[in-house]
Amino acid sequence: MSTAVAKSAKKLKTREEGKPNILLTVLLIIGCLTVLFPLYMTIVIALKSPSEMTNDVAGALSFPSSLSFSNFSEAMRVTDFWNSLLNSFLITGLTIGLSLVLHSLAGYSIGRSMGGNKAFKFIYFYIVSGMFVPFAILMMPLVKETAILQIDNMLGVILLYVVFYMPMNVMLYCGYLKNIPQAMEEAAEIDGASTWTTYWRIIFPMMSPMHATVAILTALGTWNDVMTPLVIMSGSEHTTLPLAQLNFQTQFGTNYNLAFASYLLALIPILIFYIICQKSIIGGIANGAVKG
């Protein structure tokens, strides 16, 4: 018995102080190449002038002899980069703002009322089941509907995103609310605060870890989405960053350096965002997975 204890103590020690597994580290670093290689290729081709692109592998993948930034200025001109960037920012930003307010309100009222109220329980399942409705079935009717309501523009896209992300976000907020004891609100209400003030003063700030998760998940989804703006905004002259890449495919032609400069430009904003907030993005998503 005493040997077993000693053995387990030894094991415990090796677990905590053990050396990092070098072989595994090397394998994982090699595996990274599958992720980094396509990005390396994008950067190298974007920085090259078309004359350097020969027909062999080296021509495409070698490091450019001189950095050519003219691809970028040309790509910005062709795709109207700053306008599409602004549109993407507007759509993503407003979607996040509306989602944080409307979804957390809905999540709160549903989460607190569905225990004793059948109507709220129904609303919960009604909204969450929206997760299984594919965009394909909504697409054609939504094109008609947004045209009739005259929101076949950015506003329409924003409202649609608020609806598309509602099932997931309401579920996340409802789940998170279980961690917040109801005693808080009861105490505030005894002090004479209304439900509305209690919510904004106490509950909304307490849900901030979930706000981060919701904001990140919604942001990644809306920033990269092509299908919704493609079908809804096709009538207007506005585009988003990914949609511009689709619309200007024919103008890029066989000038791959121009095309890749444009792809890189479109990827840079989210890459910067990711480099700055990597920890909170990964943490936020992990948080959503555990709570959801």
Partner: peptide, 20 residues
């Protein structure tokens, strides 16, 4: 609190689903 979300959901999820 739940009404704004619910109205949007009906307008842009349920109604297009039914029209589809």
């Amino acid at each position: 609190m739940v009404l704004p979300a619910l109205i949007l959901f009906i307008a842009f999820n349920t109604i297009p689903l039914i029209t589809g």
